[in-house]
Design a protein around this nucleic acid. Structure first.
Ligand SMILES: [Mn+2]
Ligand SMILES: [Mn+2]
Length: 201
RNA sequence: ACAU
DNA sequence: CCATGT
């Protein structure tokens, strides 16, 4: 495999995951019954190594957690970080857009991800619905749970607009019960979150 | 390291 | 390669 960067050795002089073929080959050479394979990503290699040489191919279909299609997905994008921030929310199943906001001034990726979740909460309350909210951001999910945006962003004239929105979002969280489940979107298993802006390619 |  | 975060 031309792009392979990770080599799993399940049986050999030493087992493990190697980043160089020279190292993997040293475990396999002259070792009858050695089992090994190359992978393109670290994640694939780790999963394959953990599950063993015979079952790694079907592990995903057995263990892959299911996503709830009756849900909302949010995501933020940033032009520079810190930079110009926007976020949006979509229906997970259809990707139809529910809301979108481009924020004045500059902010961080994580501030955008945080505001996206809180916007989804407020939007749902306004719309009278209660569906799970998916975010791919551990940071933002944690901040919403704490009702506190722990950003390191410096305060300045350019960051004043987003800090105002953050303050408003934190206030909303303090004043309203958080009813919808806020769930981690498992990007490695499911691919990019449906609300993604698709600019990383 | 993990998640962006 | 840079940056934001736990
Ligand atoms: Mn994201
Ligand atoms: Mn994205």
């Amino acid at each position: 495999m031309s792009n392979a960067k990770w080599y799993v050795v399940w049986e050999g002089k030493q087992t493990g995951i190697f980043t160089q073929w020279e190292d993997a080959k040293a475990q396999v050479h002259g070792h009858p019954g050695a089992k090994y394979q190359s992978f393109k990503t670290k994640w694939a290699a780790e999963e394959a190594f953990r599950v063993g040489p015979n079952s790694f191919q079907d592990l995903r279909s057995k263990v892959l957690p299911d996503k709830n299609p009756n849900s909302i997905a949010v995501d933020a994008a940033c032009s520079g970080n810190p930079g110009v921030v926007e976020y949006q929310g979509v229906c997970t199943d259809s990707k139809s857009q529910l809301f979108h906001k481009k924020i004045e001034g500059i902010g961080t990726n994580n501030c955008g991800e945080f505001l996206a979740i809180v916007h989804a909460l407020a939007w749902q309350k306004e719309a009278g619905v209660n569906r799970p909210i998916y975010s791919d951001s551990d940071v933002a999910i944690g901040w919403v749970k704490q009702k506190k945006c722990k950003t390191t962003l410096e305060k300045s004239k350019d960051t004043a607009p987003i800090f105002h929105l953050i303050e408003r979002a934190e206030k909303w969280l303090e004043e309203h019960p958080v009813k919808p489940k806020i769930l981690k979107w498992l990007t490695k298993d499911w691919g990019e979150i449906p609300a993604d802006f698709g600019r990383k390619g």
